[in-house]
Design a protein around this nucleic acid. Sequence first.
DNA 1: TGTTAGCACTCTCCATCACTGAGTGCTAAC
DNA 2: GTTAGCACTCAGTGATGGAGAGTGCTAACA
Lengths: 365, 365
Amino acid sequence: MESANTVDRVSEMKVESMEERKKRVLNAIINDYIANAEPVGSRTITKKYALGVSPATVRNEMSDLEEEGYIEQPHTSAGRIPSGKGYRYYVDHLMEKEPLSPQEIHQIRKVVAGSVKEMESFMLSCCNMLSRLTNYATIASIPEQGHGRVENIQLLSLSEHQVLLILVASTGIIRHKLIELPLPVTPAEVAAMERDLLRNLIGCELRSINYDKLRDLLQDYQAQQKLATKTLELLEQALSGDGEQRIFIGGVMHMLSQPEFRDVDKLKNLFSIFEQDKRAQELIDSVSSDDGMLTITIGSEMPQEDVQDCSMIVANYFVNGEKAGSIGVLGPTRMSYGKTVSLMEQLSAELSKAMSDKKKAKYTE
Amino acid sequence: MESANTVDRVSEMKVESMEERKKRVLNAIINDYIANAEPVGSRTITKKYALGVSPATVRNEMSDLEEEGYIEQPHTSAGRIPSGKGYRYYVDHLMEKEPLSPQEIHQIRKVVAGSVKEMESFMLSCCNMLSRLTNYATIASIPEQGHGRVENIQLLSLSEHQVLLILVASTGIIRHKLIELPLPVTPAEVAAMERDLLRNLIGCELRSINYDKLRDLLQDYQAQQKLATKTLELLEQALSGDGEQRIFIGGVMHMLSQPEFRDVDKLKNLFSIFEQDKRAQELIDSVSSDDGMLTITIGSEMPQEDVQDCSMIVANYFVNGEKAGSIGVLGPTRMSYGKTVSLMEQLSAELSKAMSDKKKAKYTE
DNA sequence: TGTTAGCACTCTCCATCACTGAGTGCTAAC
DNA sequence: GTTAGCACTCAGTGATGGAGAGTGCTAACA
């Protein structure tokens, strides 16, 4: 029984314990394919990557690798290309992170140091920077508006039928929303409401604000016929963010240069995602982890059909140890994983640091 | 002398006075080419468009039209396609506006009626709607921030080093900007500044606000070492908008379906504009008139090389008789001018109306 | 037993060629 | 001025036939 167990364990380990030379062949195939986007043959490998064996030997290894599903042959007389399983093995065991150049680190720091203050423009420049460095498309999401706590609320009376609500959240997001009032309200009344809201909502979790809470809070006004139910609804929507998650997309154009997207029809599929914020949102949400730093999703692992020949590397960034948002690179399956991972790790670290610094600054008030 | 004069005038009129049949041939060619994106032959014309003459006759007309530069032949044995000059003549003299369907009018009204309140999301949905209706890309710009007058200013003290500035402009634009203060300021001081700004700037033309004006206004604080020069600069930037013109782009994906952009390289040129707000801005600015309602710019008339095989139809919309912004459709030169012009006229009228209504509502406060 | 050289085989890619069909321009007749 | 007829041009298509890349298999070798 014991011996059987051992055997089982060994067979389980099989994937891990690929022979050294086979690994090197697989590694060579994938690296070459990533670089040149063309099937890789046995001769190419022996010439470019010093394995010290003949093409025939490499062919034998390749035959094995194909049998085990790590590589594929587009047609009989072509070289091999990595399969999904192959990429996965590569990413998990073979890939070497490419060190960043001082210029790249500088570029990241410059953008991150820039202006964490205003989320919107900040994230947009992060996206553009990341796309520039990777040559792939970038998708970033800032935290659901429900995240974080209320730091400040301001009600500004624009006219007797219009109130501007300004919300400052602990996540650094500042939002304004114009509320049309069905019933006229005087500036004094607005100011009083503001006081009530401030007193009761500061420090409140944004997601805990709901219609009932607001009604209780403002019931005096409602009793005086000053607030319509409609107004409360609008207020609640504005405060809770109403699921309004902001998504940022950059570097879409880079995809046009990828040989896998020479075909306009493939582009159409891909771009259908970039044009619908909702789909981009779903994509990055389902592909990013809730806890870890980096996730890599490869080809067929992608949740949406339109991007099944893409891979995505997503990093989270954190404020106060809590996940604050994600930023991810979307490239062809044949993307440069080593380089991109290095970039993303650097960026995510810098991001988290910058945001925490900012928080610290606030706490020292 | 008099007779010479007459002759001159006649020759000047020549373009206008194209013979009826020739016009009909040109019209047929352009309409067919717009519909099918393929060179049009003489047989096609006699079959599809009842001219009551034989293909040979049409061929003669076509030969003339080619000589005069209205149409071109891609190669000897192909039909004819319109030239830039041909499109121009078509747009100026032949094109018939296509009436809109009730559904289309309804869609426009629905979006325009939606929520003129918040410019940003409003313009974005206008763009998307217009792209959906035309199947072309849309570019819109909202007025330079320098337009309009100050309607309200609010300063919100977030911390002793951060002030949030909220600006409500008469154009309906609401903007917030976080200002980092080099020197600490108490909430009371911020409130006092706000009062001073409000008293002096309400009703002020935004573009008339400059550094000197602000310095005069706030010199007391500065004298007390409460405001750094840097702060004044930031304030001035925030108020003047600092050239921050917002541009909106929608429906880019539709261009992928146009046969003229089957070629990925052509797409690259086109998309290089969509990715750089600045270039999109330049494009719509240089192509829209300052006064008239609608402008049509065709192919080689386009100011940027990357869009020389596109046409653009731009409408202005007005608030209080003043140009408030532009919205334009960018399609292939072979675009459906008749339909698009109708849509744009309708949209621009509805837009101006909606915005004026809103103004009226404000003035009746 | 693992490695390698040699060789036949497969299949894509590319150029060539001929054919077809669409469309023209010209001429002569109406 | 219009039209029928005809010769001519040229893009597009499909078939054909190497050339080249790459494989798998076999047999020899270390």
